[in-house]
Design a protein around this nucleic acid. Structure first.
Lengths: 366, 366
DNA sequence: GGTCCTCCTGAATCCGGGA
DNA sequence: GTCCCGGATTCAGGAGGAC
């Protein structure tokens, strides 16, 4: 594979990484020629200062020049422009996926709707291993959002319902996907051993999108190609790809990467096989769900101790506060304690272990 | 509790369900008087039949694209208007939560940002028991999206980090929340046994929001009150609420519902506090109080460094002088250091963290 | 080779009270 | 309003070395 320059609107260069600004390059390609677009545009993060982990190490932030926009309206203009060019390339029954975070995804969704795209689903990528919130000032930002849209209302988009159902152990695929972020050997490094691209997406994510929303032989366009995850997975799965990337360094990494990919790599297919562990139920959820009330008394199995439930799912017993496990351990003067089997509550005059409530919640989740 | 009509901008009616259009009612309330807003705005506006373009021409229902555009812009206008009224009511350090689905949440998010709100997180409510997609044409729509935003950048919003961490078994609360939809006897029914409201939210969702983003005694406003889940949970948790609802039937159901709710005990509402809230103890006080003697040696936790206490509560270590934090940071060559957890002193041959002495002083102060 | 332990890292709008 | 500086803050998982 080689990097090809565009040459007018005549030909559609397949399995190539095109050099240039994505809007100009797209405008040079023939219209209605693409089946699927996957786009991972800049998020416009607007980071203010440096962030350190509690161990004082510094977080390697996404501060690249390509993520800088002067204002929301500048970002909106950029979004409308590339969406317009992308829409022109799409076949009437084609579809688009765009990924983003809360910084940009609302602007993107609005622009999609205004441009006439018809949203089919918003899909949440729930990261199994996100970066924590180091300062404890917000919720852990543990997901990103993808928007899946057809070219217009009533279009006959591709959706491989059964394939996704099999990927999900025989149950309908839901709009929330739990997948790990891209780390380890899959994460591409430069010659210094640093990450080659700050925001490389996992192949498992693209695998699921391409299996579910395209067919073998389809043409898949990625206007923000980066290090080419879309191209690599497209090649594995027997789809044709077109990548557009303006940074030479990314194009080079992507080219080498894709050259090594073999079609129908079995390992890649296994990535998405989900393993189902027994769901962890926080005790606090019993309180949120009203199965136990704040202020309610719990009793130890051995009847020696009692404690009161608080609104945040902690207990107070004597002068000890903490989780069901911590308070149990403290009252028993033991190094540890399984609060689930230690505590009971009272219902209709009878003592019932709180673990019964956990089982109840687990059963509901199936 | 009774339904109260608004009477000019003078009084703030608490724990009342106000009758009327939420924008008009909000404009009649005093500004900067509300701590938290939870909003579940409608998105099935069913405007299509009576829809007019800005120039008052009738929308041609045949022209899908125009119809769609006009309908989005009408929705945007409605969104901007109620957000503007809501923003006026919010205290400077107040915050807002808005919930929606892919039909409207992108419009809402864009309008929030344009109005000057500062997004803190987008939070995904992952439904453990969603309605399946019967036709198999899309992914099961298994989540809704909430946006949490402060009144502006730099505002000091309320976030009970430790309480949410407790609710989640001791690990940081993430931006994806797994909770079931509202069913069973929590789901309110009308006299015919039909559901009283089409989109009643589960109390567990509001419980988590109010525990995490408000304090007891705070004023919580819900401009689209419906059957009053916000009011019911606010009452349980010792928050004051203001509901606005224009449908008499919903107001009645909500009023009866909330009347039956009992507030939890005051001590059950206490929530695990952050360490930041504890009184500050200057290190010098340990020296003044004789817990540490001038000239005494301190040792770093990692045993690599030592320093000597001076009479004014500063340390000397090597050629570095300054506070416990400054000397620790300098010796470790780190941007910052928590001296309380970094330094130990020696007693009876054992190393003891100096933080133990701080705890001792704090205990005495109670 | 297996197991244990340490170190490193990831799309991040990440502090606040008192002078 | 600004400035200073005390001091609070992390989860999952992979790589690689030690034994």
């Amino acid at each position: 594979m080689t990097t090809i320059k565009t040459q007018g609107a005549a030909a559609l260069p397949l399995n190539a990484i095109l050099d240039g600004d994505c809007i100009e390059v797209m405008n040079g390609l023939p219209e209605a020629s693409v089946d699927l677009i996957f786009a991972d545009p800049p998020y416009n993060l607007q980071l203010k200062s440096q962030l350190h982990r509690p161990d004082n190490s510094q977080v390697d932030a996404v501060d690249d020049h390509w993520d800088q926009f002067a204002s929301f309206s500048a970002y909106d203009r950029f979004t409308r422009d590339w969406l317009k060019a992308a829409r022109r390339l799409l076949k009437p029954n084609g579809a688009i996926w765009v990924i983003g975070s809360y910084h940009n995804i609302f602007r993107v969704g609005t622009a999609l709707q205004d441009a006439g795209f018809w949203i089919l689903n918003d899909v949440v990528w729930r990261k199994s291993n996100p970066m924590p919130n180091f300062r404890g000032k917000r919720l852990t930002n543990a997901h990103e959002t993808m928007i899946w849209a057809s070219k217009g209302e009533g279009a006959r988009y591709t959706f491989n319902y059964e394939a996704l159902k099999s990927l999900n152990e025989g149950v309908q695929m839901r709009s929330d996907w739990v997948l790990p972020i891209c780390t380890g050997h899959e994460r591409l490094k430069d010659e210094n051993g640093d990450k080659a691209h700050p925001t490389q997406k996992p192949e498992s994510l693209l695998h699921r999108i391409l299996v579910g929303a395209s067919n073998p032989g389809d043409v898949v366009l990625d206007p923000f190609f980066g290090t080419g995850t879309t191209g690599a997975v497209a090649k594995m799965l027997g789809r044709e790809f077109i990548g557009i990337e303006r940074e030479a360094a990314y194009r080079e990494v992507a080219g080498k990467r894709i050259a090594k990919v073999r079609k129908y790599d079995r390992d890649a297919l296994q990535v998405t096989a989900s393993k189902r562990a027994e769901p962890r139920i926080p005790f606090g959820q019993l309180v949120e769900r009203g199965l136990l009330r704040p202020g309610e008394q719990l009793f130890s199995m051995n009847q020696r101790h009692k404690a009161k439930v608080r609104a945040d799912g902690t207990l107070v017993g004597g002068d000890v506060k903490g989780s069901i496990h911590q308070v149990g351990a403290a009252l028993e003067n033991a190094p540890s304690c399984n609060g689930w089997t230690y505590w009971c509550f009272q219902r209709d005059g009878k003592k019932v272990p709180i673990d019964v409530l956990r089982q109840q919640l687990r059963a509901e989740m199936e």
